[in-house]
């Protein structure tokens, strides 16, 4: 029979074995498309929105946020971006304009979140074409959440929409113009609106039959100030449809650059590019 001390010694390794077991379970991947992740890496949009709303912005206050795109496969750059963004004063959140992953795999979404959760502010995403390859759509919805969603923060209503038409082989359902119009119809108490999508409307990956309906939805809705996008890995700004809506395309993680957007009043904004 073993003495109690021997038993105790054996029990000491229980946590180590349990930890190895857990790591093992994590590694027992059924497929790269297997999107099982620990609970802390699920429903991130909902959780990050709750974090944002826990620090409300008073009506009339200037809003400042960081906007970038395409984190895909740039984990070294993500670390540098987090360091830089954490030094920005007065920002409320960070937007990633799609292509969180490179291959639409849940592990990638998790790797990105492991970097971006070190931000001092919450971050929010919109789905990109790379997030929709393979079984990425399911992985994205499991890890982040809805492909189209909206929220109000301070005086601004944000509408985020899936514009990755090519991933649906141009089925004329994406972007969902009806949903967009419904969302933009009401300010829900905000003063201005901002739309964010991954593929900009004049890109060849955006359904050409929906470009004008998309632009018109923004141009005719009450007080849409900015149309934000990513995809091109290159900064660009312009009022492309002569309707008062300014379209801003972000740099990407790979370009070591992001923009800081400051908004106040009804339509005032300032865009500042920051290199990291």
């Amino acid at each position: 029979m073993r003495s109690p001390t021997t038993l105790r010694r054996w029990f000491r390794i229980v946590p180590v074995v349990a930890l190895l077991g857990l790591a093992g379970c994590d590694m027992l991947e059924f497929s790269p498309s297997d999107h099982r992740v620990p609970e802390e890496f699920t429903r991130l949009t909902e959780k990050n929105l709750a974090k944002l709303q826990a620090r409300p912005l008073a009506a009339g206050d200037t809003l400042r946020f960081v906007f970038t795109g395409d984190s895909q496969k740039f984990y070294d750059e993500a670390e540098e971006l987090v360091k830089s963004v954490n030094q920005q004063p007065g920002i409320s959140f960070l937007f990633v304009a799609g292509d969180i992953s490179d291959f639409g795999l849940a592990r990638e979404l998790r790797w990105v979140d492991e970097k971006l959760r070190r931000l001092k502010v919450p971050y929010l995403t919109v789905v990109g074409n790379h997030d929709l390859v393979g079984n990425g759509r399911e992985a994205y919805q499991h890890v982040y959440g809805p492909l189209n969603y909206s929220f109000v923060y301070g005086d601004t209503k944000f509408v985020l929409i899936d514009t990755n038409s090519r991933e649906y082989n141009f089925n004329h359902q994406v972007p969902d113009i009806n949903w967009l119009q419904t969302q933009l119809a009401s300010l829900d108490g905000a003063r201005r609106q901002v739309v964010m999508a991954h593929v900009p409307p004049d890109n060849s990956d955006f359904d050409p039959t929906l470009e004008i309906p998309f632009a018109r939805a923004l141009g005719t809705a009450p007080n849409v100030v900015l149309g934000l996008s990513g995809h091109n890995h290159a900064y660009r700004i312009g009022e492309y449809y002569d309707d008062g809506v300014t379209y801003v395309n972000s740099d990407a993680f790979s370009e070591h650059s992001y923009v800081v957007v400051t908004m106040w009043g009804d339509r005032q904004f300032r865009i500042k590019r920051v290199e990291f």
Binding site: G24, M27, L28, E29, P32, K73, F74, Y75, D76, E77, A78, E79, D102, F103, L105, R107, E108, W111, K115
Partner: peptide, 27 residues
């Protein structure tokens, strides 16, 4: 591991993606 995880690893040699993160286990 697989080709996509390997590509991710070699794109981040400053330590942004630990080697252990790209491993899978089969029993």
């Amino acid at each position: 591991t697989n080709d996509l995880y390997i590509a991710s690893f070699f794109g981040n040699l400053k330590g942004g993606l630990g080697f252990g993160k790209i491993l899978t286990l089969a029993l």
